[in-house]
Design a protein around this nucleic acid. Structure first.
Lengths: 111, 111
DNA sequence: GTTTTATAGAACCAAATAGTTCCAGAACTA
DNA sequence: TAGTTCTGGAACTATTTGGTTCTATAAAAC
């Protein structure tokens, strides 16, 4: 049974630009800590810790192949955020939707 | 011109359950700090600070009517998060979509 | 004009966070 | 076996955070 991940942890993990960049990098496929660290002016250890935070938040899982620990992105917490956002999409009949919003802008703007 | 709000600030603001509860409360309409504080076992000052964080993140704006400073929810930062999520929706032909995901689970799970 | 109400500023504290450096262990390579 | 590579643990530091209390200020109410 998957561990229950809190929105607290997910949002906190995403609040750091380095971690978001790591996540974005993982869209291209699995990567080792060393590979993930390469673009940053930080120690490998610092990146390792960031990956740890992402893992703690359920946004990343790891599988060790040899010494390399490969990280892969996990989408479930992002889905949870998406679901959380649902509660705010309703407000103002679709004001949340970008297309609706663009069409509506300047038209019948509510007060 | 609206101040540029960073995803950092938005995610950080949303990482606290009290602040998310405050936001949810504001879906029902504007409220003063004292009103927002009522459901919580925290000092009014603590809530005032939370509202300050939300304001800093652009999730709340305030208008003072008399001594009461009324807070109202602002959706733009949430829209920004929604847009950020777009980058992850594409992954795995709709894996992000909840329905798709449920249907796919246990079928052709990629290794 | 005094008192009450609603909020923010200032000072403080404990805990968490992001970073570092150094060390240890696990697994390849020669 | 010895050396190299990849990563995490431990210890440390500086900064940020979430909370408190006490005080100040601004507007209403009396």
């Amino acid at each position: 049974m998957a561990i229950q991940i809190s929105l607290d942890d997910t949002f906190a993990a995403l609040a750091d630009p380095t971690r978001r960049a790591i996540l974005a990098r993982l869209l291209d496929g699995e990567a080792s800590v060393a590979e993930l660290a390469q673009p940053f002016a930080l120690t490998v250890r610092a990146i390792s810790k960031h990956v740890g935070v992402l893992e703690q938040a359920g946004l990343v899982t790891r599988s060790r192949s040899a010494q390399k620990h490969l990280s892969r992105i996990e989408l479930k917490p992002l889905r949870d955020i998406d679901r959380w956002l649902d509660g705010y999409r309703k407000l103002g009949e679709g004001r949340f939707d970008r297309m609706e919003d663009l069409l509506r802008r300047g038209a019948d703007k509510p007060e």
